[in-house]
């Protein structure tokens, strides 16, 4: 549990060496956030804002798009705090889920703009094209669909996929780390991948038709 303890230490004043006012731990921040305590929004931003901004910068490059994603993530998290349940997982994981959605939105917006400018170029020669969504880049729509489906997965399925993909753990390592039986981990991975496949095949086809 040494790893888990490093979270409040890093988020507190250990680095600055200032006298320590009583600092709520991550769980307390999450509870107060859910309860609508305004200080909890600032605490959450102090602790996890840079991590979320790093995600947005990695996905979109530094600049106004990444800043918008960070801003929108915290504003929607605050406005939608009734939808956060502390007993369903840590607040930073929930925030990252929201941030991924905003990133996906930004990707779609960019792709649409790219299509529009392509269409504008070609309309100089041909009739204007209609629906610019019709030909959204497959990789972009796949990412958007997968992000949406990831959010639909309940726990522990989503967490298992996150450990497998975002932490590069094998199914055996996931079982060891979480205490979930090996067979159950394998079964969850299988079912989740099959769900993603149906989502991509069905909705992906609809988006591209």
């Amino acid at each position: 549990m040494a790893v888990a303890h490093s979270v409040p230490l890093v988020a507190g004043n250990a680095v600055t060496g200032l006298p320590h006012p009583p600092e709520p731990d991550d769980g307390e921040v999450a509870r107060r956030f859910a309860a609508g305590d305004e200080r909890a929004l600032a605490w959450a931003y102090e602790r996890w804002g840079p991590q979320l901004y790093g995600l947005a910068v990695r996905a979109l490059g530094a600049g106004p798009d990444a800043e918008d994603v960070l801003q929108q993530s915290f504003v929607s998290a605050w406005n939608g705090r009734a939808g956060y349940r502390p007993d369903a997982g840590p607040l930073p994981a929930w925030l990252v889920g929201i941030c991924r959605h905003r990133i996906a939105d930004a990707w779609v917006r960019r792709e649409r703009q790219r299509r529009e400018s392509d269409a504008a170029l070609s309309s100089a020669r041909l009739q204007p094209t209609g629906d610019v969504d019709a030909g959204l880049d497959t990789a972009v729509t796949d990412r958007v669909l997968v992000i949406a489906e990831l959010e639909r997965l309940g726990q522990p399925q989503r967490g298992i996929l996150e450990l497998a993909f975002f932490e590069d753990l094998t199914h055996a390592q996931i079982a060891e780390r979480t205490g979930i039986p090996l067979g159950t981990v394998k079964s969850h991975i299988r079912r989740s991948l099959e769900r993603l496949r149906s989502r991509l095949e069905v909705d992906g086809a609809a988006l591209h038709s």
């Binding site: 804002g49 901004y53 790093g54 530094a62 990252v96 990412r143 993909f165 496949r197």
Partner: peptide, 21 residues
Amino acid sequence: RGVDTLTALPRPATAPAVLPP
């Protein structure tokens, strides 16, 4: 297809934190 897409998503493990403006 799903595996490749998941692999391409931005993830906390590889995205360093950045101080927001």
